[in-house]
Design a protein around this nucleic acid. Sequence first.
RNA 1: GCGCGGUUAGCUCAGUUGGAUAGAGCGUUGGCCUCCGGAGCCAAAGGUCACAGGUUCGAAUCCUGUACCGCGCACCA
Length: 587
Amino acid sequence: MLHGQIDALIKDAIQSAFNQAAEFTIDAPKNPEHGDFATNAAMVLTKLVQKPPRVIAEALAEQLRSHSQVIAKVEVAGPGFINITVTREALYQTVRDVLAAGDRFGQQEKPQGKKVLVEYVSANPTGPLHLGHARGAFVGDAVSRLLQAAGFAVTREFYTNDVGNQVNILARSIYLRYRELFGENITLDKDAYPGAYVIDIAKVLKEEDGDKWLTASEDEWRPRCLAIGLRENLKGIRESLEIAGIQIDSWFSEGSLHEQNRISELITSYRKLGMLYEAERAEGTDEKIRREDSKAANYAHQQKGGTFLRTAQFGDEEDRILVRANGEPVYLAADLAYHKTKFDRGFDWMIDVFGADHSGHIPRIRAGMRALELDDKKLQFVCVQMVRLIRNGQEVKFSKRSGQIYLLSDLIEEIGSDAARFIFLMRAPDTQFDFDLDLAIKQSSDNPVFYTQYGHARMATLLRRAEEAGKSFGGLARLSDEALAKLVLPEERNMLKKMGLFPDVVMRSALSLEPHRMLHYCQDLIGEFHTYFTKYRHTERVISDDALLTEGRLAMVAALKQTLHNALSLLGISAPEYMHAPEEKAE
RNA sequence: GCGCGGUUAGCUCAGUUGGAUAGAGCGUUGGCCUCCGGAGCCAAAGGUCACAGGUUCGAAUCCUGUACCGCGCACCA
């Protein structure tokens, strides 16, 4: 691709002029006077070469000028920028490249040869997915898709906390609701799950088992309530993910770690490495850390000592307990055992998508892995920040306590999965933002989702119109150089150039784990097209009596449409061929 | 008190990893349909990039400190 070619040429130039290698950037400048591509290579080299940047730039420019089939003009400007203008032929080649690659345009053709695990959602199976899970779910899904396109072998995993306190509380909540269904007056425990879905699960239990648990002891009913609770909740979670278009390849059960003794194995490993000690409390904790206003103080009375892991040696604030005094491992022990399996399973890169409220876990997990002498640089965490939901210009508040939750499935039903995805992915993961429901529903230009999809539909219509007029685009095989040579407008040049940047955008979005870059690219590309389309609607129409010109422009439109389609589908957003006009508002 | 994230136009957010004159959408004001989709486009107004230092050819971007906002700081998961 063009960007890659330029990159290679600059590398060669640096090599042959100075016998060096350097990290430089290639920009597509917004100012057209600065050419199609600009590089800071000369400025980066000043320290290595010990010469003024402009001198270096001139030397590199001289090298670059020899590649006249790709590069038309090279200029040195400002403090030492090298501005490169490419030949029209090179730009025309990207049209052919796009059409030849089709749906695979933008994807890395050669595999990276690396296995990546992306873990996301990992919601407790104690209830349905709600808005709090949505952002992480969409980001995790999009990051996975991007990494796949970048040539990685990706596994998408959901870790299920199917043992422990929370699910026991769920079991108990179900049982209480079950008794209620038989006419009993119940009082929910204060930590019980109040949601209506618990009643639904209780109904299923009643349907399947009748009244057989009414007289049973807790030891008897609990396993059954737990099992049916997990089954029903996981079923609901799967359904929600499916309607949201979020894929999961692998469901990893915390319970399986216990069954396979992974946790006791882990503890043995730590013990052999001398990383454990028995104590009443973590060594070295002082009162400064355990302040009155720290949350820890509120639970001090529950701390009874046990086996500690020396995480403080590896960057954690303090050592963490792994096994309680009664021999029961804590959640962290299972989580560390889980993360160890990621290394055991041979992944080269492991990504956890966390909500901001779990960011506190990161140092512990890293420390736990380093204590096992594993390379924690292979672990990477994407923290998605909180989202405020806005309706009618007001923040919508939720509270689990009162059962006031907004479900992921409700969101999809209300605004559709394309809009939900687009809006969640539009923002950088690590910034908070306001999610405006009214805007998302609006089928108008204020809504970036529709703006972008509309652009795609508009291109599709153009190709349909051409077909109706008997001037349909004949495809790559029949595309002639003469037709492409007709693309001479500055806007056309710009769009061709942007299109050529797409594979680079995919790589950048993937490697930086920032899907929003892709959507900004989409909006940018589509904006160019809308401008072009409107500006020339009277003078330079795509479909005209000039057969060659029409062929060239249709080829460009087909390539643009393909690029936009690929960009959107890489994020799981649909690219419609046709969109219905909104109904006129009756006034 | 400590840790993580944030602070850029009236609002919501970008800013290509340190580059050229800081951008987009919405909102405001004013324009553009004999037309391949006006669901669009063009133009104008709007900025002390939170504040103060520092690093260098060059800082919204990097380092330090301060202020404010969010999240977290449990032997819950």
